[in-house]
Design a protein around this nucleic acid. Sequence first.
DNA 1: TATGAATGAGCATTCATTCAT
DNA 2: TATGAATGAATGCTCATTCAT
Lengths: 191, 191, 191, 191
Amino acid sequence: MSKPDKKQAILDTALTLFVSQGFYATSTASIAKQAGVATGTLFHHFPSKDELMNHLFLTIKQEFANEIQAQIKDSGDLKLDAEHLWCSAIQWAMDNPLKQEFFQQYSMSPSIAIEIREQAMNGILGFMGALLLQGQSQGLLAAYPLALMQDNCHGQYLAATRYFLDNPGKWQEPEHKTASFALFWNAMVQS
Amino acid sequence: MSKPDKKQAILDTALTLFVSQGFYATSTASIAKQAGVATGTLFHHFPSKDELMNHLFLTIKQEFANEIQAQIKDSGDLKLDAEHLWCSAIQWAMDNPLKQEFFQQYSMSPSIAIEIREQAMNGILGFMGALLLQGQSQGLLAAYPLALMQDNCHGQYLAATRYFLDNPGKWQEPEHKTASFALFWNAMVQS
Amino acid sequence: MSKPDKKQAILDTALTLFVSQGFYATSTASIAKQAGVATGTLFHHFPSKDELMNHLFLTIKQEFANEIQAQIKDSGDLKLDAEHLWCSAIQWAMDNPLKQEFFQQYSMSPSIAIEIREQAMNGILGFMGALLLQGQSQGLLAAYPLALMQDNCHGQYLAATRYFLDNPGKWQEPEHKTASFALFWNAMVQS
Amino acid sequence: MSKPDKKQAILDTALTLFVSQGFYATSTASIAKQAGVATGTLFHHFPSKDELMNHLFLTIKQEFANEIQAQIKDSGDLKLDAEHLWCSAIQWAMDNPLKQEFFQQYSMSPSIAIEIREQAMNGILGFMGALLLQGQSQGLLAAYPLALMQDNCHGQYLAATRYFLDNPGKWQEPEHKTASFALFWNAMVQS
DNA sequence: TATGAATGAGCATTCATTCAT
DNA sequence: TATGAATGAATGCTCATTCAT
């Protein structure tokens, strides 16, 4: 009955359908129907299907970035802090499997304009870059080119979440959790 | 000039357009037009647009797998062999940027049926798995779960090619090339 | 500032937009927005978009008819009276270019129901017919069929206003003004 | 069965429906249906509804211009030649009432882009202007501004055809036919 | 009287696919 | 094998109109 309900219902339904069927295979009519609103209502809230997608993408990226940034600690022990961050990030993916699947599918897809994807990336890569520099200056992390390390972090994160989403339950097993962080950390650590 | 040219022209054009515009934004009519054939001709060679995509995907994955497998060496020094393989794989991506971009976009995309994607993966993951097991049995690689390591390899490869395609020229710089392999190798090595 | 302002704002905006974009290309939402009112407000003052158009058409036709009828003189010299009337009619068009343009576009258009258009015509053709009969009975005007002459007057008026609206400034030149009346008058005069 | 049939059927149907219902009230689906073709076929032949309209407008204007120009005579007697031309033009309207009605409705309508309307006008106004100049140089026609006279001719023609189409049968009566030309000729003649 | 979110029928247009030539 | 006109279901989007506030 209250106003934001309908807009939120559209966003929730769009997320579900975009992930399960793909962006192009999901008609605006089907989103509206499943969200329980009229087709016109969707276009009352979003000027186009593309804008709905962009809104979804930016909103969820922001949600993720906020969550992660709130978990940043500075205990003095960079490795412990990194492990905490790594686990928080994967935990978010496990808690929000639909949203994580959404990223897996659309982070590289032309369904979302490249500016939007880059805009979303910057929010996260910003503080990631800062942490990497800090680790390098402490002599803990190897002095590889920063952009290469950022891409590597992102790739490893996608791979790990892919693995844990495809193998539900493994994330609860300390052996797998520890191994996933070890792969991540050892890649960058100064040997 | 002879007949197979038309089929190849369709495949080449489809690859270019799927990468630059996306699968759904590319009409069969536009592929035919740019390939210099009639719309009907496309459907003489491929029963449907989806089949054309599948054919493209499997063909290119196979091409990659063949190339890589041909580069496998067994010098006795696993690290040297791994570095050779890593560089060959990235070199292929640098030599075939369009095809690599195609993988980046469609390896996770619902535009290609999941069976096809898995089928294509198996060809490569097969010998990757064998190499990883070999390294573990030699005590060189850490004893992490195999599937996790495979996903990690794949993720690091996608990240590295993403980086080198986005920063052309860096691949020629030994510092970057070495760093990319170091990230990859150190992640898995027994410490 | 008071209430009737909103209704008038809607009418003024509708006139401007109907002329510049056409009836169908102008949405009620755009009229409301540009008039500074809510979409619902338009429908409080006019039961439908068609009724708004009809109201506009009849109102303006009436405004024109009133103006012209007030200018009718009976000096005894029919030619002088006719010239005065002709100039008054064109002067009205020059003073109200938007409204004249509105007639040019919608006098023949199916955007306005035919009954409405005929109803509007009668108000003007009524006294035009009386003047023509008077001229014929005095032997000054040729004895052509009345309806044909009425249509001819209307056609010449539309042509003249079209010319003077398209060539602003010409109406100030006596040569053009005189010529326009000469064309009109000589067509009908008994030779 | 032959190719141009379908395209022509679409044009014929569009003309009929645009005149009877108006451009915006006529859906492309209804044109296709009544023409006996699929909706896609319409768009195979015309890139858009607007282009179909433009094509129709230019084609018919050209048809009219060709017909009229073929009737131009040079007997030495300008008045006789003018009467012949006037009667030919109205005869064309009587023979093609649908097309004439189309002009009445759309010559001033924003349904057709202004460039298209002007482009169509030029074909006809060209030789009309030449004839008027010839009459003026012979001292037969009054020396009014040329553009004003052209607009006047056009306006009188629209008025006359309006009258004869609304009153079918009158065109056969010599009295009306003669009167219509007299109005036209006397307007411009040197008195 | 005024608002503006909500409605849903209707529209122009696209596009994979077919098939007669 | 190759063609390209024809198909028609499906889609994104518009917009006059309603109604609870």
